[in-house]
Simulated assay, not measured.
Amino acid sequence: MLRAFWRASDEAATAEFAARGLAGARIDRIATEARANKQAIYLYFGSKEKLFGAVVRAKMAEISDATEIDPDALAESVGRLFDWYREHPELVRLLLWEALESPREVQGQAELREEVQRKAGYFTEHGAGGVPDPARSQAVQDLMFTVFGLIAWNFAVPQLRRIILDEEDEAAALERRRASVMEAARVLAESHGFG
């Protein structure tokens, strides 16, 4: 019962927050869409801000569970990440709203940091037979942040993509961008001694 409540609330809250941000979202709309009691949502989450944080954490966990960065197949991993973002554009919108409306440390940030550090550590230790050291770890972190930016920007500013790219077809433009981002990730990895 609680799992069904969370799933319905999460889907409704994700759509509401992605469309309107933290300030513009309304718990009553979330409750109506989730077919849940508004007071139950407040009781379960505590506040609209905590619900927003839970939604962002859930989406971040979803992408973390769905995608792994394989040091031996970086370009393919980046292609899978690109595809995930294409299928889940709400994550970019949520992250943009979070940056605009909650610029300080957000709830759950420590857990997310641990997960990212685990992935970066794995990449550092297994990529190109690497030996863990601080400089190599920082290179992996920089590479990860840059690659995520290259992917997310395509979905954060689709109007800019349409202005810059000379593509009539949206799907063709995204395939072109996917290939370009994969190649950029490969080149960046090689320039940092990975791959």
Rank of each mutant, 00 (worst) to 15 (best):
residue 89 P to W: 12
residue 67 T to P: 01
residue 1 M to A: 11
residue 168 E to F: 08
residue 141 Q to S: 09
residue 65 D to M: 06
residue 165 L to W: 15
residue 98 E to Y: 09
residue 170 E to M: 10
residue 96 L to D: 14
residue 105 E to Q: 12
residue 195 G to P: 01
residue 171 A to M: 05
residue 165 L to Q: 11
residue 94 L to V: 08
residue 186 R to V: 02
residue 74 L to T: 10
residue 9 S to E: 09
residue 190 E to C: 07
residue 156 A to S: 04
residue 48 K to R: 09
residue 178 R to G: 09
residue 134 P to A: 07
residue 43 L to T: 14
residue 61 A to V: 06
residue 150 L to M: 09
residue 113 R to A: 15
residue 82 F to E: 01
residue 157 V to A: 15
residue 54 A to P: 04
residue 78 V to E: 05
residue 100 L to Y: 10
residue 188 L to Y: 08
residue 142 D to E: 06
residue 24 G to Y: 10
residue 175 E to I: 04
residue 187 V to A: 06
residue 114 E to F: 13
residue 92 V to F: 14
residue 3 R to S: 07
residue 188 L to P: 00
residue 10 D to S: 13
residue 78 V to M: 02
residue 144 M to G: 03
residue 30 I to F: 14
residue 195 G to Q: 01
residue 81 L to I: 00
residue 103 P to T: 04
residue 148 F to N: 00
residue 161 R to P: 02
residue 160 L to V: 12
residue 154 N to Q: 02
residue 144 M to F: 15
residue 88 H to I: 02
residue 138 Q to W: 11
residue 158 P to N: 10
residue 44 Y to I: 03
residue 85 Y to L: 01
residue 40 A to Y: 15
residue 114 E to H: 14
residue 41 I to Y: 08
residue 179 A to P: 01
residue 170 E to I: 09
residue 76 E to D: 06
residue 151 I to M: 00
residue 86 R to G: 05
residue 191 S to A: 09
residue 38 K to L: 11
residue 79 G to E: 04
residue 8 A to P: 01
residue 168 E to I: 08
residue 4 A to K: 14
residue 39 Q to K: 10
residue 156 A to T: 02
residue 194 F to P: 02
residue 47 S to C: 09
residue 110 A to M: 03
residue 55 V to M: 06
residue 150 L to F: 13
